[in-house]
Nucleic acid binder design. Structure first.
Lengths: 354, 354
DNA sequence: CTGAAAGCGCTTACAG
DNA sequence: CTGAAAGCGCTTACAG
């Protein structure tokens, strides 16, 4: 069996009776090729099963047809070590991949420790090795000024996902987390709840702050008291949620509803409620945030705010790719908020008449 | 602010006072460079922050430092559409990525419809565009003869994950699913169960067959009857698990334990049991397979067989990379079974004395 | 509308 | 142990 070597542009050109430059034109959808010639080239391409080699295109043209997503190293390794599912990465991967494949692009993932002393050297070395047409920054890297500067200096187009400080003129893609949290809280208030506990996420993370702001917005707007005793600081983990849930339910006058800043903590609250004989949603309503996959398998299933990470990654990819194809486009100077959804499942209901 | 262009091998050579070939030697760990010269080159490399460009290396040397993983298109899109978490892909991604990054490699994901008429054209065109140093095949693609032949013909090294028919001399990486299922069933038998129901996965999938075989092995070896009434065919989905669970629990003489061929179905069984007032594990023991992330958040948490997908991907990557570095190695002629684990959680216990 | 030439930044094969 | 030359397969910039 002979090993079939992949055809080159020279073979296509010979087959079609034109120069390689004309083949290149057809492949890259450049103008100024007669329809008939175009037709001949296309036939040659498909008869030979030709596909331009990515590395040759990259070397000659400076376009690598590659986008790289930077993930926070510590966060990612932590998730991986305890083998907790990280739906964030998964949605990123699929949303980005689907947008990329339509355009013949590829999505690469890199771990980056933005706090390391040599972060700058590592980043620029990665960029010069891969020469990506664009970079997608995930939190908390998307708010790291040092990283942003390096990218600007190297001239690499980038998109920031869920960034909070969007001063620079660049592409920033978010969902309105504050609005989502506001909606979640109003849902509980609408059901008739008045004592609504809140469990915050990891201190310092922008998402936790935004979700807390949304909660307080809704409480204030509805004229409900913000009781510090029912607002607990936690850490976005299942165990943290259990601890905070236990604390909240042990209060002399416990809340009738709890809004946790992410699903993992909300699931912990549901678990601890069941241990304490508190029935959800009859005795306690629970709302989460993220639409974590496990939230569909919990008992009861969890009412939550759906973070459109896949759509965010797809939008980032599309704009980065459009920019690579046409540098004059303004695709990269925008702050977009992708629509989120509020998903009502079975963990919320009106409070017991008492 | 001037845009810093990435340095080339010429600049490093000039800086170190040697030829570019010597720089290349040091970079590729080739022999025959004096220690002093080596030292000088290394210093120049780090002072200039030099990293060879992947596309130039790929074009000149025929090594792309890239591995591509092919995912079944329909399966993946289905999971994505309903936004079910697919821990398989996630573990693949991380296990592979960690192994790749140590070696300066990158992992790409591609969707492939192996049943399409033009599957061959698509595959070979993808391969000639990317020119990967190796390919990782996931099920059911890893058992697709047509695809295997194309890979052999194109001379692309590949690893098959969870393949069942391992006739060809190639790299095949599995876990012993039959042994895992056997272990799960013996666990239930060891607890004292005698009527143990089984819920099979999607018909035709090799994994479902292997898991069923493991179940029947254990039942037979223990002298227990295989009752067709308690062995149901399902489809690996949560809804399928609920339906089968309901059917089994409605039997005149229902089983005291159920082994479902994956976690998603097992979670469905737990859910339906709770609806029917059957308490798990007091009235019914449930075992799953895969160690799906949601299995840690269920009530009760699920006893299951852990499929070491991350380790499998890591092993595949390492061997493919080793082979790319040294074609004479025998890394690619092996059938490996990666160790799995049996994870006992809270969904199993001894049957009620009756 | 089309093509000949040069060059992207490396590695290969060869010479010394 | 080291280097000069050629070439990988494309795109760019230019000429006609």
């Amino acid at each position: 069996m002979t090993q079939r070597r992949a055809p080159t542009i020279y073979e296509v050109a010979a087959h079609a009776g034109v120069s390689i430059k004309t083949v290149s034109r057809v492949l890259n959808l450049e103008p100024n090729v007669r329809p008939k010639v175009q037709e001949r080239v296309k036939r040659a391409v498909s008869e030979l099963g030709y596909r331009p080699k990515t590395s040759a295109r990259g070397l000659a043209g400076g376009r690598s047809f590659t986008l790289v997503t930077f993930l926070d190293e510590a966060l990612t390794l932590d998730h991986w070590k305890i083998d907790r599912s990280n739906p964030y990465v998964e949605r990123l991967q699929f949303g980005g991949m689907m947008a990329c494949r339509e355009a013949g692009y590829h999505l690469l993932f890199e771990l980056l420790n933005a706090e390391a002393e040599n972060a700058e050297a590592i980043l620029s070395s990665t960029l010069s090795a891969l020469n990506p047409d664009g970079v997608i920054l995930t939190p908390p890297i998307s708010d790291n000024q040092k990283i942003l500067e390096i990218l600007v200096r190297m001239g690499t187009p980038f998109a920031r996902l869920s960034a909070t400080e969007t001063d620079v003129a660049c592409l920033s893609i978010t969902m309105d987390e504050r609005a989502g949290a506001n909606e979640a809280t109003l849902h509980l208030i609408g059901l008739g709840h008045k004592r609504i506990g809140f469990i915050a996420g990891t201190p310092g993370l922008a998402s936790s702050r935004a979700r807390q702001d949304g909660y307080t917005d809704a409480m204030r707007a509805s004229g409900l008291a913000l009781d510090p005793a029912t607002m607990l600081q936690s850490d976005y983990t299942y165990e943290g949620g259990k601890a905070s849930g236990r604390a909240l339910l042990s209060l002399p006058n416990p809340p009738t509803a709890i809004f946790a800043a992410n699903d993992e903590m909300a699931l912990g609250v549901i678990h601890v409620a069941s241990e304490l004989g508190v029935e959800v949603p009859r005795d306690l309503s629970v709302v989460g945030f993220d639409d974590f996959p496990a939230s569909r398998y919990s008992q009861p299933t969890l009412t939550t705010v759906r973070q459109p990470v896949g759509d965010m990654a797809a939008e980032a990819s599309k704009r980065l790719i459009a920019h690579a194809a046409d540098k004059t486009s303004q695709e990269l100077n925008a702050a977009l908020a992708i629509n989120h959804a509020f998903v009502v499942r079975n963990s919320t209901s009106s409070p017991k008449a008492s």
